[in-house]
Design a binder for these strands. Structure first.
Length: 170
DNA sequence: CGAATGATCCGA
DNA sequence: CGGATCATTCGA
């Protein structure tokens, strides 16, 4: 579930060192029943990873410039993923949370490429570290960003940690 | 508000 | 194979 990702720490170890950030904003995409999901049109080469095992990365390129990272997460047989939209720096990412406020900024700060698609987020250099659950009163939710209102109006699938400076600004 | 910038998908 | 689309960002 998307809200379980809030508060978890995304870690990327590469030859340059470790980068880590605490996730403070995510959006859920629900697969074939969700027209906004890249999995909506079936297992195309790009979206195929979302039809596989949960806990893997799906990184796509937005507008030719911005890598955006998702965590494949779904119930058996129902493709879906969670877009990472905002985070707070923990290690190796500087001190300004606004540099991680937005899916493109976040994935770029980690140096992610579309080739990172498929990474096992439990065992690979790119992984998620568990963290205590965020209290319900600290979690806010609203409509997803950049999606036609007709699609998303009744689906408040964007979740964020109230008051965090790592939440994307609008 | 519009440009940047390229992978992806669909229709022909 | 060509054109439209895009889960975005930044600067004028």
């Amino acid at each position: 579930m998307a809200r379980d990702l809030l508060g978890k720490v995304l870690v990327y170890d590469d030859p340059h060192g470790r980068r880590a950030a605490r996730l403070v904003e995510v959006e859920a995409y629900h697969g074939p029943r969700d027209p906004a999901s890249h999995a909506h049109r079936g297992p195309t080469p790009r979206a195929a990873v979302m039809f596989g095992a949960p806990g893997h990365a799906y990184v796509y390129l937005s507008h030719g410039v911005w890598p955006c990272m998702n965590v494949v997460a779904h119930l058996p047989g129902v493709p879906g993923a969670v877009l990472l939209r905002g985070a707070e720096p923990v290690v190796g990412l500087g001190g300004d949370p606004r540099r991680l406020a937005g899916p493109g900024l976040l994935a770029r700060a980690f140096g992610l490429r579309t080739a990172d698609t498929g990474a096992d987020l439990v065992r690979s250099p790119l992984h998620l570290r568990d963290a205590p659950a965020v209290a319900a009163r600290d979690v806010a939710r609203g409509p997803r960003i950049g999606i036609a209102p007709s699609v998303t109006s009744e689906r408040a699938w964007r979740l964020w940690i109230r008051g965090s400076p790592g939440v994307s600004r609008r």
